[in-house]
Every structure is written in C-alpha cells, then in structure tokens.
Simulated scan of single mutants.
Amino acid sequence: MGDSAPRELISLADDEGNSVTVNVLGPSASWSAGLNAEIVVKTPFVAGRIDLALSVSKLESWANALDRLDAGEDVAWMEMSRGPSIFIQLTGERDCPEVVVEDESGSMVTVRVPLVPPDDWIADHRQRLHQVMNYWVPMLSG
C-alpha cells in the first residue's frame, strides 16, 4: 500500500452486487482522539451511507469481533455506543452470512444485507485493521 492512507477498514461484498464497507475518511476536526468514517451499504435494491466516528477502542473492539467470528460466533460491533451498529451473523435468515447495519439512535433504520464473503475474509480484515491502526492511530491524541 506504500505511503497512501488505508481507507477500507471493512469491505464485505459478493457477486450479487451486495456490499457493506466501512471507510476511514481521516482524523476528526472536532475530536482529536477520533477518526471520521462512514458505513456504505450497496445492494441492487437499496444503497445508503451514514457517518461514523471511530476511536482506538472501537478499532480494538473490531479486532475482538474478528477473533469471535473466526471462532464461529456471530458478533455485534459498536452495539453499546451512540451511532450506528454493525452485526455480522454467520448464518442469517437466508442460510448465508448477513451483515446488519442498524442506526437506531439516528434514523431508526435497519438494513439487512445477505452476502457470502470469500473464504479468507477474516484474515483479510485483520490485515485491513492492522494497516488502519498503524497508519491512523499515531496521528490521534488521547
């Protein structure tokens, strides 16, 4: 990746055109310990995006979520914080993995995206997280 800033913390997509991504946009101007980010959902039926604030603790909790997913457990990421939450169910309502993006505190909208990620997706996301942490965290204070 060289010196370019890593942008995609999460990138889950399938061949059907369904995807959920979390993009890091850069340091927050209003919060020195945070990163501006966005969750982007795209499907043939619905598309949307929502702003997200990331902290070091949220990035660390994503690392824990990846460990639980690797152990075969469903996860809820950012469920206890203000703002949107992401749930990953390894076997969803349609007998395939599902990503659920919920914005209960804001728009009160929930989007359920069934998708089948590639076999190595957890290792790929650990690498994405490692790149984001190494690049962005040293820039944050607090």
Rank of each mutant, 00 (worst) to 15 (best):
V40E: 04
T43M: 02
P114E: 13
S141L: 13
P44M: 10
E38C: 02
S11L: 09
A53F: 15
S107W: 01
F87M: 02
D74A: 04
P117W: 09
Y135T: 09
G2M: 00
V20C: 02
S85D: 00
V100M: 10
P84I: 07
T91R: 13
E98R: 09
G72H: 07
G17Y: 07
R49I: 04
D3E: 07
A123D: 15
A65E: 03
M1C: 08
Q127W: 03
H130Q: 15
D103C: 08
D119Q: 15
R126V: 07
E102C: 05
D67P: 01
F87G: 02
I50L: 14
R68L: 05
V137W: 12
R49H: 09
T110W: 03
K58Y: 01
D3F: 08
D15F: 12
P6F: 09
C96R: 15
A65T: 06
G34E: 08
P114R: 08
M108H: 12
L9V: 07
I10S: 02
M80C: 11
I122E: 13
G72P: 11
L59S: 02
S4D: 09
V116G: 04
V116S: 13
E93N: 11
D95M: 12
V20G: 10
L66D: 07
V40W: 00
L54F: 05
L12G: 03
V40N: 03
W121C: 11
I88V: 15
P27I: 12
L115S: 10
V20K: 09
V75S: 00
A47V: 06
L35R: 07
D14Q: 01
R112C: 10
F45G: 01
E102I: 05
S4C: 00
V99E: 06
V137L: 09
L59D: 10
D15T: 09
W77D: 01
A65C: 12
G34K: 03
Q131S: 15
A33I: 05
W136P: 06
V113T: 15
Q131T: 13
A29M: 09
D95L: 14
A71T: 03
A71M: 04
E60Q: 15
D67K: 13
P118Y: 11
V56N: 02
Q127A: 14
K58G: 05
N23E: 14
P138V: 04
S105Y: 06
S55D: 03
D103P: 03
L66M: 00
A47F: 07
G34H: 06
R7N: 02
S105E: 10
M133E: 14
V116A: 11
G26T: 02
E93Q: 12
T21V: 14
L66H: 01
D3N: 13
W31I: 01
P97W: 02
E38Q: 13
A63L: 15
D14L: 09
C96H: 00
A13H: 12
R112T: 15
D67L: 06
P27N: 11
G83W: 08
